[in-house]
C-alpha cells in the first residue's frame, strides 16, 4: 500500500559537512525519508543534532554536501515558493504590524493591497489573532508571536509547511495550548507538514509518523507510524504511553 502513495517531498541520502579552520564537522549523515501528501510528519531528535541544518537544506537556505531533495518527484535547488517555514525563534518583524507580518510573502510576490488584506484577514482569524491586526509584535506574548509566524507561513498557501521547533521557546502551558491549536489549524487547512521537535511527547501527540534522528551527526534511527492513534490523542492513554516509552528508550541523550 505504501508504494502507491506518492511522496510529496523526498529527502535522499542528504549529507552535510561544514568545513572551517578547526577542520570538518559533520552535521547530517546520509539522511533519507519521504513525506506523503497531506501528512503531518514529525522529525524528532535531540537538541543540536543537526535538525535545523537538515531543514535549512530542505527549505533551500543551505546547500547540501551530497544527496538530493525531491519535490513532487522533481529535484529542487534553492528556495521554493511551495515550501514555507515557521521559524524557531518566531522571527516576526518587530517593526511590522501583525497584518503586515502575515502579508510579507504576498507583498514580496507583488500582490495588490486589497487582495493581501483579504488573505491576511482569513489567516489572522484562523490563528485566533482577530483584533490584533494593527498590533506590533513587542506588544504580543510569545505564543501570540508564534501564531503570527504560523499565519505568515500559511498565507502564501504553500504545498509544504516546515515548522522548526516552533514551540521550543514557549513555556509548558502555552506549549500545550499551541499544540492543540496546530492540530486544529492543520485539520482546517489541510497541508503537508514537516514538524521538527526535540520533545517526545510533542512528537507523539502531533505526528502521523515520526522520523527519529540520532545525536550528532544526524542519522535516521527509526521511523514510527502512529496513524493507528486517532487525533486529538489522549496523552495518558496506554497506547500513547507505550509508544512514547518505546521512542524514549531508543532516543540518544543530548549532550
Amino acid at each position: 500500500m505504501e508504494s502507491n502513495m506518492k511522496p510529496k517531498l523526498e529527502v535522499k541520502n542528504i549529507t552535510k559537512t561544514f568545513f572551517s579552520d578547526k577542520g570538518a564537522f559533520q552535521a547530517v549523515e546520509d539522511v533519507s525519508f519521504q513525506i506523503r501528501e497531506g501528512e503531518f510528519l514529525v522529525l524528532l531528535g535531540p537538541g543540536r543534532c543537526g535538525k535545523s541544518v537538515l531543514l535549512n537544506i530542505i527549505s533551500g537556505l543551505l546547500e547540501q554536501t551530497s544527496g538530493a531533495v525531491y519535490f513532487n518527484g522533481q529535484e529542487i535547488h534553492g528556495v521554493n515558493p511551495e515550501i514555507s517555514m515557521v521559524f524557531q525563534k518566531t522571527a516576526v518583524m518587530p517593526f511590522k504590524t501583525v497584518q503586515q507580518n502575515v502579508e510579507l510573502g504576498l507583498k514580496f510576490a507583488g500582490m495588490d493591497k486589497k487582495k493581501r488584506a483579504e488573505i491576511s484577514e482569513h489567516y489572522i482569524n484562523l490563528v485566533g489573532l482577530k483584533g490584533f491586526e494593527k498590533s506590533y509584535p513587542p506588544q504580543l506574548s510569545g505564543g501570540m508571536k508564534q501564531r503570527v509566524g504560523i499565519a505568515r507561513a500559511y498565507a502564501t498557501n504553500p504545498e509544504v509547511l516546515i515548522m522548526d521547533e516552533p514551540f521550543g521557546q514557549l513555556d509548558a502551558q502555552t506549549r500545550y495550548s499551541m499544540q492543540n491549536e496546530i492540530l486544529r489549524i492543520s485539520a482546517e487547512e489541510k497541508k503537508t507538514v514537516l514538524f521538527v521537535t526535540n520533545n517526545i511527547e510533542e512528537a507523539c501527540s502531533l505526528g502521523d509518523r515520526i522520523v527519529l534522528l540520532s545525536a550528532c551527526p544526524a542519522r535516521v534511527k527509526e521511523i514510527y507510524d502512529l496513524n493507528y492513534l486517532p487525533k486529538p490523542r489522549d496523552i495518558v492513554s496506554k497506547e500513547f504511553l507505550d509508544i512514547r516509552q518505546k521512542i524514549s528508550d531508543n532516543t540518544d541523550l543530548a549532550l
Binding site: 537556505l61 528556495v79 517555514m85 521559524f87 518583524m93 510573502g105 514580496f108 510576490a109 502564501t156
Partner: peptide, 12 residues
Amino acid sequence: INIDVGKIFGGN
C-alpha cells in the same frame, strides 16, 4: 534569521 525569513518568503 530575519534575512532567512525574507528569502523563504520569496523576497529578492
